[in-house]
Amino acid sequence: MSPSDLQGCLTFIREAERLKSVLRSAYSSTGRQESTAEHTWRLCLLAMVFESEWKELDALKILKLCVLHDLGEALHGDVPAVLQHQAPNKSAQERADLQTLMRTLPYELSSAFMALWEEYENAASPEARIVKGLDKLETILQHNQGDNPADFDYAFNLEYGNKYMGAHPLLQQIRALVDADTAQRGSKPPAPPQS
């Protein structure tokens, strides 16, 4: 790798660090808002845990899709799942932001990353459809596991991302378990205010 390409790659890595500070609307089990980077990490972990279930697919590509899927959020942040219907330009903004982040990468690498991001965004391959489903499941898992505000809308979880669950029978099995957790969590009365 040439010195200028090496420097460009390091600049990209430094810029991508911003994703660690992008907060999502989900809360951790300790009540702290999670970052997009934390969501991405657990999405990768989900993909690794269940890798043996989709042996016919490219596991490395699945992980690459997981890593890149929300990277564009490093610049303009996350749009909460419950508000995405109000953000018709979300995809275009993330695409533009990803291009900005990758401007210092060697052309071949930035082209490959953009192709993977587009593949995910358009659910254009079996791997991308698996990642789309896992992405929604990770979000719902966090919603169910989080120490959320008293007015948290658990009913939202029951519909969120259903269209991606048909990508694989395992996604449907996980979804059934997660939906049961959602129903149980949503039926609990709010915790009393702390004094």
Rank of each mutant, 00 (worst) to 15 (best):
Y107G: 04
L83M: 11
D181I: 04
L65P: 00
R18M: 02
Q7C: 12
Q7H: 11
L101G: 08
V67L: 02
L6A: 15
L137Y: 03
Y27P: 05
D147K: 02
E34Y: 05
P189K: 12
D135T: 08
R18Y: 06
Q86C: 13
E138Q: 14
A123T: 05
I174E: 01
A180F: 08
H39L: 00
Q93V: 11
A47G: 14
Q172T: 14
V131M: 02
C66Y: 02
A150T: 13
S195K: 08
N122G: 10
Q84L: 09
M114N: 05
K132D: 04
E127T: 08
S91W: 09
T36S: 15
Q173T: 13
E119M: 11
V79P: 04
L65T: 02
R129T: 01
K90I: 09
V67Y: 00
G146W: 05
S28I: 07
T30G: 14
A87P: 00
P189G: 11
D58G: 01
Q142S: 09
S25D: 13
C66D: 01
L60T: 09
C9P: 03
V82Q: 14
D97E: 02
I130Q: 00
N157Y: 00
D153Y: 07
L101N: 06
Y164T: 06
K90V: 10
A47P: 04
G161A: 13
R185I: 04
K20W: 10
S21T: 08
K90D: 11
D153V: 09
E15N: 15
K188I: 03
L141N: 03
G133P: 03
L177S: 11
L68K: 11
A112T: 05
T100A: 15
S91N: 09
K55D: 15
Y27A: 06
D153T: 10
A87Q: 03
C9I: 09
N148K: 01
V131E: 01
